[in-house]
Nucleic acid binder design. Structure first.
Length: 490
RNA sequence: CGGGAAGUGGCGCAGGUGGUAGCGCACCUGGUUUGGGACCAGGGGGUCGCAGGUUCAAAUCCUGUCUUCCCGACCA
């Protein structure tokens, strides 16, 4: 049992906070709402980046980099967009500091006021569309399929490590197309890329859907999303992809001459996932002993821990451990041999459990005699004696089994927590139980707002694979074409 | 941004009627240990979040400010 880790039952939110810090993923910094991503946490993020990046490249995208600062005038061009982000923008107004004449330190130099203030990007649509204007003349210049890995800033009032921070890391894809059909295809394709990645790689089951107009991205015509459910029954948006129509093209005057000779506005998309995925990862699989990582994502998949008394025993063990290490490495497994003499085996067991390493191999004198190793699984906390000659195969099959089982477990929990409700009373009690509530909605913003006021629940998504069975709205009784998913969300 | 709580060695906390800081864990040294967070002995480390103020004297009292946590408002 992990020391000092609050149990989930006791206080889920505190469990999460403790875990992030104790597993060495991230820490708070001296700046409100900004986090320090520690090496172990960043290693996981790098694995997310690596895999996503290659999937982006496979689907025809290239990486580029746009500036952190956005001129205020660019930012104000698309009305809905401004409306959506204005309240959470950091603004740069000066470019110089000076010594305070009264000797009390450093102050802003009022003489160095910027003529045009700069916004720290909350997202990059505006500066990118301002740029695309210069890149696009002809249909031959399209499509543009650009992604960037960057940090963004949204001045949040209430923050939590990974889930909502004022500065966070993400990728944002921005594409421009000649036709509406192409742009819609792109935004749908990317939500599938996200969905497949999150399910296959992070072992987190998702629901693919579209957003209601209330929850839609500021400036988009349609927002596709993947929604997940955490162990405490709250929903978490894990990724979004937006069909922007011609909104940004019109705002930034991005036109091209088509084959027919006519001038047309281009069609756009944007899509992103952020370090919030780390939060989803932590809250989907982990337990009261600490982090649980799916093997495909774990920076360390297997740790080898030697158990010995005195130098003699270590001398005998070490070559065997090294041989196992070499063998596992050779078959492409990310393995660490922790031969530090500064910590006892029991200490290491707990440490790697807290950090979610999927498999642990313990090698001691008893194993040496019998030609075995003890293999322990992080997800089930079970142990097994395995013959050394079978070890490599055993580890490989264990890793893929863990990956499959983590997903299956999370999927089962997701499915078990989608509850239908057909009247207001059962709607409310279903929300209180946690999870998604599948209910009819009359399709209006007003009704969604009222429901939000009354229950704190929002429409998380309109599932893509929805059966179009009509009914009547849970609140107003007006006709509804299909059920949507409500939940209280992060 | 409102309401509440808190900030004291790396971590968790005590001290608070003002008199210059202590405990547990961690750390360092030596020894014994090592199959689920070892033990003994010795040792190092803190301008008490920061800035002002009251006072002969401030961790302690006052004011401001920053950060964190909880609740709310806000949030794609």
């Amino acid at each position: 049992m992990a020391k000092n880790l609050t149990t989930r039952e006791n206080d889920y939110s505190r469990w999460y906070n403790d875990l992030v810090i104790q597993a060495d993923l991230a820490d708070n910094s001296g700046v409100r709402g900004c986090m320090i991503v520690k090496p172990y946490g960043f290693a996981i993020w790098e694995r997310i980046q690596q895999e996503l990046d290659s999937r982006f490249k496979e689907t025809g995208h290239v990486n580029a980099y746009f500036p952190l600062f956005i001129p205020k005038s660019h930012f104000s061009k698309e009305a809905d967009h401004v409306e959506g982000f204005a309240k959470e923008c950091a603004v740069v107004t000066h470019y110089r500091l000076k010594n305070n004449p009264n000797g009390s330190g450093i102050i802003v130099d009022e003489d160095a006021k910027l003529e045009e203030e700069l916004i720290v990007r909350p997202t990059s649509e505006t500066i990118i569309w301002d740029t695309y204007k210069k890149w696009v003349q002809s249909y031959r210049d399209l499509p543009i399929m650009v992604n960037q890995w960057a940090n963004v800033v949204r001045w949040e009032m209430r923050t939590r490590l990974f889930l909502r921070t004022s500065e966070f890391l993400w990728q944002e894809g921005h594409t421009a197309h000649a036709t509406e059909k192409e742009a819609i295809f792109e935004s749908q394709q990317m939500i599938d890329v996200y969905g497949d990645f999150v399910e296959e790689y992070m072992a987190i089951p998702v629901i693919r859907g579209t957003k209601s107009s209330n929850e839609r991205f500021a400036g988009a015509l349609e927002t596709f999303c993947i929604e997940t459910l955490m162990q405490d029954g709250k929903a978490l948006q894990a990724g979004t992809s937006h069909f922007l129509g011609q909104n940004f093209a019109k705002a930034f005057d991005v036109k091209f001459q088509d084959k027919d000779g006519g001038m047309k506005f281009v069609w756009g998309t944007s899509w992103g996932v952020s370090t919030r995925l780390m939060g989803a990862l932590i809250m989907t699989h982990s337990d009261d002993n600490g982090l649980v990582l799916p093997p495909k994502l774990a920076p360390i998949q297997v740790v080898i821990i030697p158990i010995y008394r005195g130098e003699k025993e270590f001398e005998e063990l070490d070559p065997v451990a090294l041989k196992v290490l070499k063998e596992l490495k050779a078959s492409g497994i990310r393995v660490k041999y922790d031969n530090r003499d500064t910590h006892k085996p029991g200490w290491k067991f707990n440490e790697y459990e807290l950090k979610g390493v999927p498999l642990r191999i313990a090698l001691g004198p008893r194993d040496l005699e019998k030609g075995t190793a003890e293999v322990a699984r992080r997800d089930t906390l079970s142990k097994e004696l395995v013959k050394l000659k079978d070890l490599s195969d055993h580890i490989k099959s264990n890793l893929s089994e863990i990956q499959v089982q983590l997903y299956a477990k999370a999927k089962k929990s997701l499915d078990a927590n989608i509850n239908p409700a057909d009247d207001w009373e059962s709607f409310e009690s279903a929300l209180d139980k946690g999870g998604f509530v599948s209910a009819h909605w009359d399709g209006t913003s007003e009704t969604e707002n009222k429901i939000k006021e009354m229950t704190k629940a929002t429409i998380r998504c309109i599932p893509i694979e929805n059966k179009k069975i009509s009914g009547s709205c849970i609140l107003t009784g007006k006709p509804s074409k299909e059920r949507v998913l409500f939940a209280r969300a992060y």
